[in-house]
C-alpha cells in the first residue's frame, strides 16, 4: 500500500479526520486554559498573601503597587517570628503533634483491625458508634466536653482515689487520653479508612500464620502491619496536618503550650497589642495599628504557621491523595 498524505486520507474519510484532530487540539487548549485558571484560583490567595507580607509600609499604602513590592522587606516576617515566639513554638508543636498523631494512628489501627477481622457480639452497634464519631464532631459538644474535662471523674472512679474530680483542661494528659482511645480529631475517619484497607487484604495470610501457630497479636504485628505501611503513613500524615491547624483541641488542652495553631490565630491580636505598646506610645497617646498592617501580620502568621506542613505536603503529596483511593470508600 502506498503512503497517502494527510489530505488524501482526510478526503477519503469525508473530512472526518480533520474535524477529529481540530476538535482534539481545541479541546486540549480549552483544558489547559481551564486547568490553569482553576489552579490559579486555588493558589492566588497564597501568592497574594506572600506578596503582601514582603511589602514595606510605603508599598502597602501606595495604590500603584499591586503585586510586586517596590521596596521588598522581610521586616514583617522578622516581627512575626519574634511575636509568635516562632522557633520555640515550632519545636513544641512538632513534638506534641508528632507524638499525638502516632498514638492516634496506633489506636485507630488496632481498632480498625478488630473491626475488619473479628466477629464478636454487637459488632454492628460499635461500628455505628464509629460512624457517630464521624458525624457528630466534638465541636458541637463543646459545652459538655468543657465540663467533662474540667471536672473529670471517669464515671465516678477518680473521686474514689483522690476524693474529688481532676481538672484535665490545659494538660497534656487530657489530650493523651483522647489519643490513646482513638477519640482525637477525626479519628473515626481513620478507623473507617483502615478498616476498609484491612478488609481487602487476603485472609489466607492470617490463616497460614494461624496454622503455623502464630498468635493473633503476633499475626497482626508481623504479618498485617508491614503491608499496611503506606496507608498507615497516609493516616499519620492526615492526623499530623489536621492537628497542626486544629483550634478546638488546642484551645482546650494546649492553651499554655503556645502551639502553632494558637499562635497563628493570635498573631493579629499580639501585633495590635504590640503596636499600641511600642509604636503607639512612642507617637504619643493611644493609636491603633493600621488595618492594612494587621492584615499583613495575619498573613505572616498564616504563612509562617503552615510553612512546615506545606513542606510535609510537598514531599508526601502521594500519600495524601492515594490513601482514600486505596481504601475504596463505598456505602
Amino acid at each position: 500500500m502506498t503512503k497517502r498524505t494527510y489530505w488524501e486520507r482526510n478526503t477519503a474519510t469525508d473530512g472526518y479526520l480533520l474535524r477529529r484532530d481540530v476538535s482534539r487540539v481545541l479541546g486540549n487548549i480549552f483544558m489547559v486554559i481551564l486547568l490553569f485558571g482553576l489552579c490559579f484560583l486555588v493558589l492566588q490567595p497564597l501568592f497574594h498573601q506572600f506578596s503582601n507580607t514582603i511589602m514595606s509600609r510605603d508599598d502597602l499604602f501606595d495604590p500603584t503597587v499591586l503585586a510586586i513590592p517596590r521596596f521588598p522587606t522581610l521586616d514583617h516576617f522578622r516581627l512575626g517570628l519574634e511575636l509568635m515566639d516562632y522557633w520555640q513554638s515550632l519545636w513544641r508543636t512538632l513534638a506534641i503533634t508528632f507524638s499525638m498523631s502516632l498514638l492516634q494512628v496506633a489506636a485507630c489501627t488496632l481498632v480498625a483491625y478488630g473491626f475488619a477481622r473479628f466477629d464478636f457480639p454487637l459488632k454492628r452497634f460499635w461500628f455505628v458508634c464509629v460512624m457517630i464519631t464521624i458525624l457528630i464532631p466534638p465541636h458541637i459538644l463543646r459545652s459538655a466536653m468543657f465540663i467533662n474535662f474540667r471536672f473529670f471523674e471517669l464515671f465516678g472512679i477518680i473521686p474514689l482515689f483522690t476524693g474529688g474530680s481532676v481538672n484535665l483542661l490545659d494538660t497534656l494528659q487530657g489530650y493523651t487520653l483522647l489519643s490513646v482511645t482513638a477519640m482525637g480529631l477525626r479519628n473515626g475517619l481513620y478507623i473507617f479508612i483502615l478498616r476498609q484497607y484491612f478488609r481487602n487484604m487476603p485472609k489466607e495470610l492470617e490463616e497460614a500464620a494461624w496454622v503455623d501457630g502464630c498468635g493473633k497479636l503476633r499475626t497482626f504485628i508481623q504479618i498485617m502491619l508491614p503491608d499496611a505501611v503506606p496507608v498507615l503513613m497516609s493516616c499519620f500524615l492526615f492526623a499530623f496536618v489536621w492537628q497542626w491547624t486544629d483550634g478546638f483541641y488546642s484551645s482546650m488542652f494546649l492553651r499554655s503550650f503556645g502551639v502553632m495553631a494558637e499562635q497563628i490565630a493570635g498573631l493579629g491580636d499580639y501585633f495590635a497589642f504590640w503596636y499600641i505598646v511600642s509604636i503607639g506610645a512612642a507617637e504619643g497617646g493611644l493609636s491603633l495599628a493600621p488595618i492594612a498592617l494587621v492584615e499583613v501580620m495575619i498573613s505572616v502568621g498564616v504563612l509562617l504557621g503552615i510553612a512546615p506542613i506545606i513542606v510535609v505536603y510537598l514531599f508526601a503529596q502521594r500519600y495524601f491523595v492515594e490513601s482514600i483511593g486505596q481504601s475504596g470508600i463505598k456505602m
Binding site: C129, I136, P138
Partner: peptide, 26 residues
Amino acid sequence: NAIAGYLFIAPFVLGFLAFMAYPLYQ
C-alpha cells in the same frame, strides 16, 4: 475470636463511652 476482637477494639469502646457517649448524655 470474640474476646480477641473486643481486646482490639477496647480502646475505642472505652474512649467512646468516656469521651463521646458521656458528653452526649451530659
